[in-house]
Design a protein around this nucleic acid. Structure first.
Lengths: 335, 335
DNA sequence: CTGAAAGCGCTAACAG
DNA sequence: CTGTTAGCGCTTTCAG
C-alpha cells in the first residue's frame, strides 16, 4: 500500500531513464526500444504507478473529457442517453463527466460552471428551452463546442427526433384505431420545449385530420399525474377517448391514477406516451408510445461533438422515431 | 467569444495585481479588501474567466472529485444511487465522476483505472462480489478510500440493506398472504452477491417457517426473464404460487412473460421483486417489492467516504428496508 | 532511440 | 492586505 502515489519522475529515477522516456512508455510506446519500455512498464506496475491526468491535462492543454448535462437520471430516457454518450466517448479515448440539473435552471448553471471549471472540451446537454437558456447563452459566449440532445433548435447543433412529426404520427395511429376525441397531457410547458413541440404536433395533425381540437391539460409536474386535473378532464361533456401523454413516465402515472379512479386502460380509456422507454414494453398491457432512440441520441450527439473537436463541425440530426408497444390503446368500433 | 480561455495570470496583469491575489479573490475572498476583490471579480466576469481545476488540482494536490463506479444507469436503482451520491458530494464541494461497468469485469477494471488516473480522491462502487473482485483488490492495494454500495462485506466498508433479512421478510409476507410454495428467480448468481444473499434469505426463512424448499431458477440475464425456463418451472408437478424475483426489473419482465403465456398476475400467480424502484408503484397492479432506499444508499455511501477523506473512518451501514406495493401478490384462501 | 529544459495554471509559504 | 517565489506532474520541443 504505497502511502503516497509515486510520480512519473520517481519511476524515471527508479528505472534510470529520463522523465520524458517514462512518459513515452505510456503515450508513444512505439518510440521506445522494447527493453526500455518493458523495464519502465514493469516498474510502474510494481509501484502501482499510472500517469496522472491532472499533470498531463495541464501540460498538454487537453483534458480529453466531455461534459454531460442532463435533467435527471431518474428518467430512463436520459439514463440511456448517458450510456450511449459514455460508450461513444470511451471509444474515442474521452472520459465523461456527468452532472444533473433536476430541471432546475440554477442547478443547471452551477453544474455547467463546474464542468467548465474542470475544463471539459465539449458539452452535451438538454435544456428546458434553447431559446431562453442562460446556460446556453453562456456556453455560446465561452466558445466551448456543444451539442444539444433532445432539444431542437435552429441556432445550435442538436440531436433529437422530429418531435412535431412524431407526435403527429401517434395521432394518426390513434385515429386509425378509431379515436377522434383526444387530449394531450403534459408537464409545465415552459420546462420543456419537447412537450411544446409534441403538443403542436398533436394539434396540427388533429386539425389536418378534421378532428375536434384536442384538449390540453398541463400537470404541475413533469412525470406525475395530478388526480384532480385528470378527473376534471374526464368529467367534461364529451370526454376524450385517448390520452396522449408527453412522456412515458407521465403516461405510466396517468394509468396508475386512472386505476385509482376505477378506470381501466385500455378498456375504459386509451393512453399513450412518448419516449419508448424500455420499461414500457414490460408493462401489462404494454405502453403505446413514440419510441425515440435515446441511446443513439447520446452516442450521435457525442459523435457530432467529437467531430467538432476534431476541427470539423457538428451537424444537427433528427433520428428516426417509431411507434412502439400498443396494448394501452384500444381499437374502437367505428360508429 | 474569447478564442482562448484567459488564465489567472492574465487577469492579474489586466487588473494590476499579483496572481496570488487573483487566486485569493476566488478561494479566500475574505482576505482581500472589498475594492481589489470587486475589481478582480468584475474583470474576470468580463473576460469569462473561471479558475481552472486542472491547475488548482495539480498545485494543491487535491482534485475534490469522487469516483462512482456502477453497473448501469438503465437500472433505476443505480440511477437513484448516483443522484443521492451526487447531491451529497456537491453539498460538500466535491464533483463526481461516474463510470458504468455494464456488469462486465473488464470494463469495471478499465473504468476504475480511468477514475484513478483522474485522481479521484475516493470511490463509491458496486461490484459483482467483493470477495472475488480484482478491482477491489487493486483499489485496496492503491490505498484509495472507497465505500461499497449495495454489496455487503466484512472486509470493506459498505452501505446496503440487510439483504438476508429483507428477503426473509418478504417470505414472511408471502406466507402471511397464504403462499407456501415459492420459487426464487434471479439472474446469474456469480454476477451478484446481492442475489445470492437474497436467495439465502429466502431459503433460510422458508426452512424456519417449515415451507417446502423453494425452487431456485437462474435466468441467463440479470433483468430479463427467459420464457422457457419460466414455463418449465410452472409445469412442474406442484408449481409455486408465488415467484420472488431478485430484482424489480426482472420481476416486471417475468410478469410480462407470464402475460404472453396467458397467465395473469396476481390472479393466476403472484410475483414480487426486490428494490422498490419508484416505477413499480406505477405498475397496475403495483409491484410488490422489498424497498431499499437507493438514493440514501448513494448519499450515505458518499457521506461515509467523505468521513474517510476528512481523516475519519467509514463505517459500514445497513439501512432499513421495507415492503412496498403489493398488488402483484394475491391473498390466497387458507385451505 | 533517449535526454535536457521549459512551462502549462494555479496556490502555499513566506515576506512585508 | 498583497507580492514573491517555487513547484505540483506531466509533455513537448529541440538536440543528440
Amino acid at each position: 500500500m504505497p502511502s503516497s502515489r509515486p510520480s512519473l519522475v520517481q519511476i524515471a529515477e527508479r528505472v534510470g531513464v529520463s522523465p520524458a522516456t517514462v512518459s513515452r512508455a505510456f503515450n508513444r510506446p512505439e518510440l521506445l526500444s522494447d527493453a526500455t519500455r518493458e523495464r519502465i512498464l514493469t516498474t510502474a506496475r510494481q509501484l502501482g504507478f499510472r500517469p496522472s491526468k491532472v499533470g498531463s491535462s495541464l501540460r498538454s492543454g487537453s483534458t480529453r473529457t466531455l461534459g454531460l448535462l442532463l435533467p435527471t437520471m431518474s428518467n430512463p430516457v436520459f439514463a440511456a442517453c448517458f450510456e450511449g454518450a459514455e460508450e461513444r466517448a470511451l471509444k474515442a479515448g474521452y472520459s465523461v463527466m456527468l452532472a444533473t440539473t433536476g430541471y432546475d435552471s440554477r442547478r443547471e448553471r452551477a453544474a455547467a460552471h463546474s464542468l467548465l471549471d474542470h475544463r471539459v472540451e465539449g458539452m452535451i446537454l438538454t435544456v428546458a428551452d434553447p431559446a431562453r437558456s442562460a446556460t446556453l447563452a453562456e456556453l455560446t459566449a465561452s466558445g466551448l463546442p456543444f451539442v444539444l440532445a433532445y432539444n431542437e433548435s435552429d441556432r445550435h447543433p442538436f440531436v433529437s427526433v422530429d418531435n412535431l412529426a412524431a407526435a403527429g404520427d401517434m395521432v394518426e395511429h390513434l385515429v386509425a384505431s378509431g379515436h377522434r376525441r383526444l387530449a394531450m397531457i403534459s408537464g409545465p410547458l415552459d420546462a420543456s420545449d419537447r412537450a411544446s413541440k409534441r403538443l403542436d404536433g398533436v394539434l396540427d395533425r388533429a386539425a389536418r385530420l378534421d378532428l375536434p381540437a384536442p384538449t390540453h391539460v398541463s400537470m404541475p409536474r413533469h412525470t406525475a399525474a395530478d388526480r384532480d386535473r385528470l378527473r376534471s378532464l374526464l368529467s367534461s361533456p364529451r370526454p376524450p377517448t385517448a390520452l396522449f401523454c408527453s412522456n412515458d413516465l407521465l403516461a405510466a402515472s396517468v394509468i396508475a391514477e386512472l386505476a385509482t379512479l376505477g378506470l381501466r386502460v385500455p378498456d375504459d380509456l386509451s393512453v399513450c406516451g412518448f419516449d419508448g422507454m424500455a420499461f414500457g414494453a414490460l408493462m401489462v398491457p404494454s405502453l403505446a408510445s413514440v419510441h425515440q432512440p435515446s441511446s443513439e441520441i447520446g452516442s450521435q450527439a457525442c459523435h457530432e461533438l467529437l467531430n467538432a473537436l476534431a476541427g470539423g463541425s457538428s451537424r444537427s440530426v433528427r433520428l428516426p422515431h417509431r411507434l412502439s408497444g400498443g396494448g394501452t390503446v384500444a381499437r374502437l368500433p367505428v360508429d
